[in-house]
Amino acid sequence: MITKLYYSAFTVGLLFDILFGRRLGTLTTIYLLMVLILDLAGTKFHLSRPVIIAYIILFQILIYYGSLFIG
């Protein structure tokens, strides 16, 4: 389990909630679930940490642009 990634997902989620004017806790929950899925998938498929981190960054970018367009 990559503990640091869970903490960073929580912090980034909280910051984005404030920046995007969402109810606090919305993106933190989504990000934490995302990291959990990638963490479990990483263990299952023997993905290295850099690959998992790359996936997380990719998902964050997708969520960021999703937030911009969907609202």
């Binding site: 869970y6 929580f10 806790g25 990291v35």
Partner: peptide, 16 residues
């Protein structure tokens, strides 16, 4: 860690 943080997230969500 995940369970603790998700619990905090939900508490924050509820309080907000």
């Amino acid at each position: 860690t995940f369970i603790t943080l998700i619990f905090f997230s939900l508490v924050i969500f509820f309080l907000d």
